[in-house]
Lab assay of single mutants.
Amino acid sequence: MEVVDPQQLGMFTEGELMSVGMDTFIHRIDSTEVIYQPRRKRAKLIGKYLMGDLLGEGSYGKVKEVLDSETLCRRAVKILKKKKLRRIPNGEANVKKEIQLLRRLRHKNVIQLVDVLYNEEKQKMYMVMEYCVCGMQEMLDSVPEKRFPVCQAHGYFCQLIDGLEYLHSQGIVHKDIKPGNLLLTTGGTLKISDLGVAEALHPFAADDTCRTSQGSPAFQPPEIANGLDTFSGFKVDIWSAGVTLYNITTGLYPFEGDNIYKLFENIGKGSYAIPGDCGPPLSDLLKGMLEYEPAKRFSIRQIRQHSWFRKKHPPAEAPVPIPPSPDTKDRWRSMTVVPYLEDLHGADEDEDLFDIEDDIIYTQDFTVPGQVPEEEASHNGQRRGLPKAVCMNGTEAAQLSTKSRAEGRAPNPARKACSASSKIRRLSACKQQ
């Protein structure tokens, strides 16, 4: 084909351009004929944790799935940006308080904090938690009735009371019990989460009196709706648990309003109706937990002794299953770290194939690490110290990083047969305790 000078094309009309061969290198194709290559998922490591896909996002930050490269346990990490926390009232204080509380709590029905990582340079905090497959609110939203069968609701409620009793025994008032803060594992274990607005009572406090509340409006008791200066913290949790039980068994809320002012007005009056299909035992329990006067409201001991709580409820309806993943529609909620794991395991070791967030990740503290002497050669063979940054567990980050890069360049065919977990650990520049 004859090559045409581009400067001469402006002298031709459209018809003349076609005659000189423009149609031979300008093609129009339908979008259905285009085959897009999927974007390669680059592996990203935060300390010893391999990052997966997004699980959810809230006002405080994002939650992603991660894999512990040492234990191969599935975890969830809450990623918090200090810049964003400053824009939220009491944001930083709530996060630090939640970390302090979770560090000393150990119960099967309370979410466990596994690790805390802090990135000084990017001003990011990573709260590594045990993995929960789904939230209770997500399960309720997945069915038209917006409720659980009585047998399933009873099982979840009993676990909620177990976890709540443990928190109260530790002198902690949750203040925000609701389905949105109750998570579930694949085995059906309920976990109380989000202790950001919780309050730890003084060890020598005479009672459970509280003065502040930041919980969700629909789950607040009349004493808070009416603006009382002080109130019983434990009875606030009992009320919120009662509203939660009402919601998961009926699909409704005892109090509603077009806006928060109308909602608080209705809560302050204390008038509500219980659907007739709840039955006398459940209705009596709800009335005891939603008692207007805090002094007359049920205690956890009274809830445990109630006939509806103690009764064994046979399954009359099919239980609400864990819904498919909202993004991938995966009904099994498979591990989202698998594509990243395959990338590390299947590809040659190259620095361009993975990302390490930083050479140094500070753990379990908000301060910069200490310094240790770096050896410097002298005339008599002895070495003197220069400062060298280290990880919180004493690992020399720069030395590990250099060693990792040197190993990656060394030709050794046997290394390709290593397991995925050992490869992740070798790529991680800074081991965590």
Rank of each mutant, 00 (worst) to 15 (best):
L45R: 08
R211D: 15
N226W: 15
Q382H: 07
K416F: 03
G155R: 03
E57H: 13
T24A: 10
Y156T: 07
H27R: 06
N119A: 12
E98S: 12
S404A: 10
D277H: 10
E291D: 06
G215C: 06
L9H: 15
N226E: 01
Q220K: 03
H107A: 05
D53S: 13
G180H: 15
L195P: 12
K82R: 15
Y131M: 00
T250R: 03
V110N: 03
F231A: 15
C210G: 06
L286N: 01
D162I: 06
R409F: 04
G408W: 12
G270C: 11
Q37S: 10
F354M: 13
R103A: 11
L105R: 03
P323T: 10
I35G: 09
D330V: 12
K431S: 15
I322V: 06
A417C: 09
A316W: 02
A389C: 13
L55D: 10
V337N: 13
R301S: 12
N109A: 03
K311L: 06
D350L: 15
E16A: 13
Y362G: 07
E14Q: 10
D350A: 04
P315T: 08
H154N: 01
Q123V: 05
Y118M: 15
S31L: 06
G56Q: 00
E351H: 02
E291G: 05
P369I: 08
N181M: 00
T71L: 05
P281E: 10
G180R: 05
S307P: 14
K62R: 15
I260M: 10
S378W: 04
S216F: 00
A406C: 13
D359P: 13
T395G: 12
R75L: 04
L427F: 10
G270H: 06
K84W: 07
K48W: 04
G251P: 00
M51K: 10
T186W: 04
P254C: 04
K416V: 11
D358P: 03
P294N: 02
E16S: 11
D365M: 14
D208Y: 05
G180L: 06
V77D: 00
G58P: 01
I424K: 09
A397L: 09
L160P: 00
K122S: 15
P324K: 03
A225I: 11
L344R: 12
I88Y: 15
E374R: 15
Q112F: 07
P411W: 03
I46H: 14
P281I: 12
T230R: 11
N226K: 04
F148H: 00
I161P: 05
N393Y: 13
Y292R: 08
R297G: 00
F366R: 13
I248H: 00
I274G: 06
G58A: 05
E357R: 11
D343N: 06
P203S: 15
E16K: 01
P294S: 03
R28V: 06
H306P: 01
T212S: 05
G233F: 12
P38T: 05
E98M: 01
L344V: 11
L50H: 06
I46T: 09
G408A: 15
N393R: 06
Y156G: 01
L353Y: 11
K423R: 08
L252S: 12
D208N: 11
I361Q: 03
R211S: 10
P144Q: 09
M136K: 01
I356Y: 07
D350F: 01
V372Y: 12
M18Q: 09
A241D: 02
P411E: 15
S193M: 01
T209M: 12
N226C: 09
S325V: 04
L400T: 07
I322F: 09
P315Y: 09
L85T: 00
